[in-house]
């Protein structure tokens, strides 16, 4: 099922949701069959102004390496390895990364085998064949197999330093819960969370979820941007980094690459948020530690 890089199209394309959804058959989701590459390649749209940024080969090699390096140690570990290197290799503006058609193309045309390897459940309910959920191929940015890693690297990095993103991706609950919250679009907030992970203040999935809920709820009354202001990344520096792709070496396998030098997050702002969150977290109940479990599971409105 693994495909040779030589058989692949040279450049990335765009695959609209409708086309992707139509081709996500049960066979594709269970890994028993491959998506129809030729038909998909024909239906894909070209990316305007194509250039080396859209080369498929470096990506495919990256996925192959991720799989090779983590086949034995455990596939969840591949996330924190792949996220920074994917972000380094696939240099996109946020506007480009927000287009699901690009991620559909990567998942269905470039590396469907990787999606299945990474996300196929070991067992399935009611005796059916285990299958990957469709949103790993075609889904929102916090679900789609590659989009979630790229966005995790983008939202958790500290300027050119990918280490906070690595810390974030080591915890599946950060990827599953925190990544989807609007509050982390504020860089000092995102960095405060990863710092608490690095410092071991939050460790377990339940702790991460409790922290996430506390931060999210407090954000209904607090404007974090006013408490800890951040000028935001330097758009020109980011542009420069994108344009520099041809000069840059391939992502190193053993060491972390350097991300875009678009400005570190102000230390003081991170301190403010971290202090705040530590206090909130200390007061937050963590599920499992509570005296009794919630009885009801009401619906969100």
């Amino acid at each position: 099922m693994s495909r040779h890089a030589d058989d692949l199209p040279e450049q990335l394309g765009l695959l609209r949701d409708a086309v992707a959804a139509r081709n996500l058959t049960r066979g594709v989701l269970t890994g028993q069959e491959s998506p129809p590459f030729v038909a998909l390649a024909r239906e894909a749209e070209r990316i305007k102004g194509a250039g080396s940024r859209w080369n498929v080969r470096p990506l495919r090699e990256l996925f192959d390496d991720a799989r090779r390096l983590h086949d034995e140690s455990g596939r969840t570990g591949a996330d924190s390895w792949l996220a920074p290197r994917l972000h380094y290799t696939l240099r996109l503006t946020r506007a480009e990364a927000a287009d699901p058609a690009l991620w559909n193309y990567i998942a269905l045309v470039v590396a469907p085998d990787y999606v299945v390897w990474r996300h196929l459940p070991k067992t399935a309910r009611d005796g059916k064949r285990p299958a990957v959920t469709a949103d790993r191929f075609c889904g929102p940015h916090y679900k789609q197999a590659f989009a979630r890693l790229w966005w995790a690297a983008e939202l958790f990095r500290d300027g050119d330093d990918y280490r906070p993103a690595v810390a974030a991706c080591r915890n599946q609950d950060v990827l599953n819960t925190v990544l989807r919250l609007d509050v982390i679009d504020h860089r000092p907030t995102a960095r405060a969370v990863t710092r608490m992970l690095e410092d071991g203040i939050v460790r377990t999935g339940r702790e991460v979820n409790a922290l996430a809920t506390a931060i999210n709820a407090a954000a209904s009354t607090l404007m974090y941007e006013v408490l800890a202001s951040d000028e935001g990344p330097d758009a020109e520096a980011f542009r420069y980094w994108m344009d520099e792709l041809d000069m840059a070496p391939p992502a190193p396998r053993k060491t972390l690459p350097a991300g875009p030098g678009d400005g570190a997050i102000p230390e003081g702002a991170v301190d403010v948020m971290a202090t705040y969150f530590e206090k909130l977290f200390a007061e937050a109940p963590v599920r499992g530690k509570e005296p009794k479990d919630a009885e009801e599971v009401p619906i969100d409105v």
Partner: peptide
């Protein structure tokens, strides 16, 4: 409790 985004905790 209301939140900035996503589901509200009961």
């Amino acid at each position: 409790f209301d939140v900035r985004s996503g589901s509200k905790p009961s």
